[in-house]
Simulated assay, not measured.
Amino acid sequence: MSDASLVERSADGDAAAFGVLIRRYGPLMRAYAARILGYGDGEADDAVQEAALQAWQRMERVEDPDRVRTWLFRIAANKALDRLRRRHPHLDLEAVPEPPTDRTVDQVVETRMQVDELAKVVRNLPDAQRAVWVMREVGGASYAEIAEQTGMSAAAVRGSLARARRTVLEQMEGWR
């Protein structure tokens, strides 16, 4: 069933249709929230649960049902950012598990080491830079969407993202 059909049915109160949407995008929303928050002690799960509740309550407000994924990610990002603002930054970032592949053990280990190093670099970014970098590079959000979600100006988003990218590139230089 298409996202648009599920949105329409959910907006009419069909909990089963909404459940399909959350099963479809919930794991991605959780990974997105975990990256924004910088660690995985259940806070990302709480943010996604709050996002799902808000989405259910506001399903009739979806302007473009074909873009419900973006809409859900925006809500999850907002919930994660709310949590980020309320807490002292922590430095433990968990990598999202990789799906099984046909790669050799050496390739898997090397990739895992690269991901771990990237996680450390991202974890050590200042909160605002980390949030902007994750929203853009992981979530694919536009500058305007990031500005709206963070309350920053578009120029501040560009500057913060540029600083974050520069730090990531400098720190990851050894992996090129």
Rank of each mutant, 00 (worst) to 15 (best):
T150D: 02
L118Y: 05
E170Q: 15
A33S: 08
W56Y: 15
Y32G: 01
M172V: 09
R166H: 10
A128K: 12
A15P: 00
R176Y: 04
D12L: 13
A154K: 14
Q49V: 09
L21C: 00
M1Q: 10
D3R: 00
E148L: 08
L91H: 15
P97N: 14
Q171D: 10
A33L: 04
M152E: 09
R30F: 03
L118C: 02
M59P: 03
L125N: 13
M113P: 05
H90S: 14
M152C: 06
M152D: 12
T104H: 01
N124H: 13
S160G: 13
Q107D: 11
E43N: 11
A164T: 05
P27C: 01
A47R: 03
Q129C: 02
F73S: 02
Q149N: 12
D64W: 08
Y39P: 06
L6R: 13
R123I: 09
E94G: 10
T167M: 10
I22H: 07
Q54H: 11
M152L: 12
K120M: 09
A95R: 10
G174W: 01
E60Q: 09
A4T: 06
T150F: 01
R86P: 03
W175E: 11
V105N: 08
A128P: 05
R30H: 12
P65R: 04
A77D: 02
V168P: 00
R85S: 10
D92Q: 13
D64Y: 10
L125M: 09
I22P: 04
A4D: 08
P27Y: 03
I75V: 06
D106C: 08
A16P: 13
G174L: 00
T101L: 01
A147Y: 01
Y32R: 04
W71N: 06
A16L: 13
R158C: 13
E63K: 14
W133A: 12
K79A: 04
L169H: 14
Y32N: 01
V115R: 14
V108H: 14
P89Q: 11
G174A: 01
V109Y: 09
V109W: 09
A16M: 11
M172F: 10
V134Y: 09
S160Q: 07
I75M: 03
V132C: 00
E94Q: 12
G40V: 07
V115I: 15
R35K: 12
Y32Q: 03
G174R: 01
S5Q: 15
N124W: 06
R74M: 10
A34T: 03
T70N: 07
Q149Y: 04
R123G: 11
T101N: 05
R30T: 14
V108R: 15
E8S: 10
V157I: 07
G38H: 07
Q57V: 08
S153L: 02
A33H: 03
P27E: 00
V108P: 12
A80I: 00
S160V: 00
F18D: 06
L91M: 13
L28G: 14
M113C: 10
V96R: 13
K120Q: 13
A31D: 11
Q49G: 12
P89M: 07
G13C: 11
E110G: 05
E137Q: 11
A55H: 04
